[in-house]
Nucleic acid binder design. Structure first.
Length: 271
DNA sequence: ATTGTGGCCTGCCCGC
DNA sequence: TGCGGGCAGGCCACAA
């Protein structure tokens, strides 16, 4: 059940669960042909891409599939691969419809001035990436291999490799998309809270038992929060504010900056 | 190579 | 009622 806290206006942050929903919705576009590209915001185009270059590269090509690796959404065509990143506030409109709806927080309004990238399709339809804060981006032929294994499919062995020898905090390792791809701040706080692990403990210091707890919590959180409706529906979410109490044991939560991110954790049961 | 820090960007909340 | 400051966080450049 989603926790709704009046006054909390955490925006809908696209972590892997939201990007996966975008992917599922975009699958409906497979088979259509790109007839025009609209990229009005040069900032949004990465790695030297320009509006005219994107148009030249994509026009007349057919969409053949959609893949996801972590938070990176990949459009396969019979020409180039297009990579879409959503940053913190990016949303995808598929034929004018927002696939991620019912989000409890954040602005519901939309604004055409936030449309950073669009594809016009034949015989009909469109794809639009809307991003108020412009922290996302679009690039051609993204390097997918710099990303670690996807968090939804990570194996015990891969998790062990991702954490091995890490001297930084556990949370920073889980946020590092090179190690494991897909987890953002909210999901990591929820996972570590459920696993009973202190986000500040060294990533490389986990024994087999702790790694097992972590992997189980990761899988369970991803499955449950997806069923509930997204990354912001965790049990910790409602308490993730100054003065919040641990929903498990009532202890005042600790608020710290770890891995450069605002971090809430329970000093009593996260060790 | 690994780890840490700051900046990008802008909507929104809060206090005055 | 308006305004300024701080905050949010994914990602990247850069420093140590």
């Amino acid at each position: 059940m989603a926790v709704v806290v009046p006054g909390d206006h955490t925006p809908p942050v696209p972590e892997l669960l939201e990007v996966e929903r975008y992917r599922q919705a975009a699958l409906g576009l497979v088979g259509r042909t790109i007839v025009d590209v609209d990229a009005p915001d040069a900032w949004f185009l990465k790695r030297g891409l320009t509006d005219s270059a994107a148009r030249a590269a994509l026009t007349d090509h057919r969409i053949e599939g959609w893949r996801r690796r972590g938070k990176l959404l990949l459009m396969d065509t019979d020409g180039p691969v297009l990579g879409l990143r959503f940053g913190m506030t990016g949303r995808l409109l598929v034929d004018g419809v927002l696939p991620v709806e019912g989000l409890e927080y954040g602005p519901r309004r939309t604004d055409v001035s936030w449309h950073r990238f669009g594809l016009r399709l034949a015989p009909a339809g469109s794809l639009v990436l809307e991003d108020a804060r412009r922290l996302g981006g679009v690039e051609l032929g993204p390097d997918e291999d710099v990303l670690g294994p996807d968090a939804l499919a990570v194996t015990s062995r891969q998790l062990g490799q991702a954490l091995a020898g890490g001297k930084g905090p556990l949370k920073a390792a889980l946020l590092d998309q090179h190690r494991i791809a897909g987890l953002g701040n909210l999901l990591v706080d929820e996972i570590l809270w459920r696993a009973g692990l202190d986000p500040a403990r060294p990533a490389g210091g986990l024994d087999g038992r702790a790694r097992g707890s972590l992997l189980r919590a990761m899988r369970r959180v991803l499955r449950e929060l997806d069923e509930r409706g997204g990354s912001h529906t965790g049990d910790l979410q409602g308490a993730r504010l100054p003065g919040g109490l641990c929903p498990r044991d009532g202890t005042p939560l600790e608020r710290r900056t770890i891995g450069g991110r605002t971090t809430y954790s329970c000093p009593a049961h996260q060790r």
